[in-house]
Design a protein around this nucleic acid. Structure first.
Length: 155
DNA sequence: GCCAACGTTGGC
DNA sequence: GCCAACGTTGGC
């Protein structure tokens, strides 16, 4: 079992959107970066856990925990010419992009802000906090995972 | 809105 | 294969 951090923009698809879906389960799609794609296609497994992170918003924060409900499969939003994630290079026979389904396990009563993560010495070296990181999915070590959970309970 | 960081594209 | 131009991400 592996841990991940999945970014999303709360204005577009935030944890509240996810919470309202049937079985609190939805697509996490639209990734158009090859490094991130490789995580989705090759590494992430059903049953893995992820932090659901809110980015590009007033207070970037980890908003809760999701479980991977379905491992990587072709991202059909790449095939829709009308959609915002259309990519003409992707075809049904040769899909380039992948997505997963996520199920909301728990929304944090109080999200853990990016600023707090930065202040935690245990998280020094976490990929999310490194310069220039722009990947929308990142692996999280079990040490980082536990350190972050502890921040919530001691909050 | 600004800007740094980074990925991608395309001319050569 | 180099590299400048451009687009995107995302914090602030």
């Amino acid at each position: 079992m592996n841990y991940w951090l999945l970014k999303s923009e709360p204005d577009v698809f935030g944890i509240r959107h996810l919470a309202r879906l049937p079985r609190k389960t939805g697509h996490w799609d639209g990734v158009r970066n090859y490094q991130a794609r490789n995580f989705l296609r090759d590494a992430i497994k059903k049953g893995d856990l992820g932090f659901f992170y809110h980015s590009s918003c007033a207070e970037p924060a980890i908003a809760g925990i999701v479980e991977i409900a379905r491992a990587g499969y072709p991202d059909h939003t790449a095939l829709d010419p009308e959609g915002p994630h259309y990519d003409p290079k992707s075809t049904p026979d040769n899909p380039i992009w992948y997505m997963v389904d996520v199920k909301l396990k728990r929304a944090f009563r109080r999200p853990i802000p990016l600023a707090a993560l930065k202040r935690n010495p245990a998280l020094k070296g976490m990929k999310l906090l490194q310069r220039g990181n722009r990947l929308s999915i990142l692996p999280v070590t079990s040490k980082e995972w536990n350190a972050i959970l502890k921040m919530e309970t001691t909050d």
